[in-house]
């Protein structure tokens, strides 16, 4: 049916056919899920922030303990095996908030425990979050430098 080396044209024709038959992503459904779940996570964060402000923290100071609580909850629900179920439906809604970042560290840590504490958890914990940190910190340095030049 196919020659030894499939020609570029034939490959492209096939890929086109594939694109036609590829099941459509349920974009609207995904967006609604992402909006609702992402919104609820942020609302929860706002609730904690307001609570800490009511205790006498400044809004800026309240950010610290709020993040800590959200990270804890995310790690806790990842451990219970709930967060991946949420992520399956909510997509970016549960990946983008800080809880998604916590999930991406706890999930590999749990998974690679069987390979030991050093080469398992230690080495693999940042397998997903690592790139985020590398490029996040690099971007922060560049932005900081630009900010410093403008002053």
């Amino acid at each position: 049916m196919f020659d030894k080396e499939v020609s570029q044209a034939e490959q492209e024709k096939y890929q086109e056919k594939f694109e036609q038959l590829k099941p459509k992503t349920p974009i609207l459904k995904n967006i609604i899920w992402a909006f609702v779940v992402g919104g609820l996570i942020c609302m929860l964060g706002q609730f904690f922030t307001n609570y800490f402000v009511s205790l006498g923290f400044t809004p800026k100071e309240a950010g610290g303990p709020t993040s800590v609580i959200l990270i804890f909850l995310s790690a806790f629900f990842t451990g219970l095996g709930v967060y991946d179920e949420l992520g399956r439906r909510a997509g970016a809604g549960s990946i983008v908030p800080i809880t998604g970042f916590a999930n991406s560290i706890v999930a590999p840590a749990m998974e690679f425990k069987r390979e030991g504490y050093v080469f398992g958890i230690g080495a693999k914990m940042f397998i997903i979050a690592g790139p985020v940190l590398v490029y996040g910190i690099s971007t922060a340095i560049i932005i900081g430098f630009i900010y410093w030049l403008r002053l």
């Binding site: 590829k22 099941p23 459509k24 992503t25 349920p26 995904n30 990842t78 095996g81 967060y83 991946d84 179920e85 949420l86 992520g87 399956r88 439906r89 909510a90 997509g91 970016a92 549960s94 990946i95 998604g100 999930n103 991406s104 706890v106 999930a107 590999p108 749990m110 998974e111 690679f112 397998i127 997903i128």
Partner: peptide, 17 residues
Amino acid sequence: ERQYRFPTEQGVQRPMV
């Protein structure tokens, strides 16, 4: 899954394909 893709507890959305 853990060899080829993501850790199983990772909250990722799988594409329809």
